[in-house]
Simulated scan of single mutants.
Amino acid sequence: MKIAVTTPTGHVGSRVVQLLLQAGVRPTLLVRDPDRLAAHVRERAEVVRCDQGDGDAVVRATEGAGALFWVDPPTDDEDPVAGYARMGANAARAVRENGIGRTVFLSSVGAEKRSGAGEIDGLGRTEELLDATGASVLHLRCGFFYSNLLAEVAALREEGVLRTTLPLDEPMAWVDPRDIGDVAAARLLSDAWSGRQVQAVHGPEDLTYAQAAAILSTALGRPVRAERISDDELRAALRAAGLGDKQVEGFVGMSAWTRDGFRPENARTALTTTPTTLGSWAWEHLRPVL
């Protein structure tokens, strides 16, 4: 069976590719820049230069695929919600026109809201577009990626601070992207499921930012404190970085919606819990870059 994989150099996609190769599959990799793939991966995969924003290219690249791993990649669209929805429309078109039987989509906790969750609304729209194809689809509703902390390296190194607009005592799901890749690959390789399904990927435990800062202090061997900032402070920082108004609001909205008592549609269970702790991830990935 031909398995097509998007974003194969990403935190999740690269893990999916590794596991498919180890399972004896020769995946088809849709990638904007094939040179970013390791040589051993290029040798063992069908590599297609493809911009996921080009619907015709996506349809051509996925022709003959029986399964698809789809990630809405970041876009430069002025409106990130519309950008994600545009990518999702290309995925849905490929599923319909190529008769792709099963799609695993990298979604997010909060996509179930459909509106009011910032950029995540675009993932919710992609879920709807894939559902409308009538093909089997699994939406992976993932928690906060540990790897997002890599964007905070400067503040952690220079100030020992972890900033957020969330209440410091508000627990939420944190997850290692590698573990998400494990779940995605297992579902791509299995033909034991069909229809529309949703599976959360919540990591090993819900953590508050205060707890996360304490864990990072131990793992990194340096003090880290959590600090709450206002939405307006975040807006000012994002505008200073050159983001437009809709981009700013899309980013701010990704945290603002969690402050109104939201609880994920999928509860934490043995099925949604994955093993890698924040401490072990930080020791392996964050400590070396500080």
Rank of each mutant, 00 (worst) to 15 (best):
G195S: 03
A45K: 00
E170K: 12
V25K: 06
A173C: 14
A132N: 09
D76L: 10
G261E: 11
W70I: 11
L140N: 07
R32T: 06
F144G: 13
N148T: 10
A240N: 12
H202R: 05
A155V: 12
A184C: 04
G99D: 03
W70C: 09
D35A: 15
L123M: 15
A219K: 05
Q52E: 14
L149W: 11
A282H: 06
L216Q: 07
G55C: 10
V17I: 06
E46S: 13
E170Y: 13
L166I: 08
R96M: 04
R60L: 07
S136K: 03
R187P: 06
D33A: 08
V31S: 01
A38F: 09
A154G: 14
L156D: 06
I215K: 05
L286Y: 02
R178L: 13
V201F: 00
V81M: 00
V25D: 01
Q52C: 11
A45P: 03
A117I: 05
V71T: 12
L278R: 00
M87Q: 15
S108D: 15
A210T: 15
T7P: 08
T126C: 07
R187E: 14
G53V: 07
A241K: 13
D79T: 10
R141V: 03
A213D: 10
P80F: 06
V58I: 04
A267I: 11
G253D: 05
T208V: 00
R93S: 00
D51A: 00
H202V: 03
V104L: 03
R259G: 02
E227L: 09
G66M: 06
D206T: 13
V17C: 02
T103A: 00
Q247P: 02
V81N: 03
A219P: 07
D76I: 07
A38E: 14
V248I: 02
L216F: 12
T164V: 06
P264G: 05
Q18D: 15
F262V: 06
E112M: 04
G195Y: 05
N98I: 00
L189C: 01
A210I: 12
N98W: 05
A135E: 09
G55Y: 07
A267E: 14
A57I: 04
R15C: 10
E63P: 09
L238C: 04
N266V: 15
Q197G: 10
V95T: 01
D176T: 06
Q247G: 05
P264D: 07
N266W: 15
A256I: 09
T133N: 08
L166W: 10
T208A: 00
G221N: 03
L68I: 03
L21Q: 05
D77W: 06
G13K: 01
P8F: 07
P177M: 01
A94H: 04
L19D: 14
T164P: 05
P171G: 06
S217F: 08
G134D: 05
E205A: 13
D245V: 09
G195P: 01
W70S: 13
W257F: 15
R235G: 11
F144D: 12
R157A: 13
V41H: 04
P264T: 02
L162R: 01
S230D: 07
W193G: 02
V198A: 09
R125A: 13
H285I: 09
R228Y: 09
R36A: 06
W281D: 04
T208K: 01
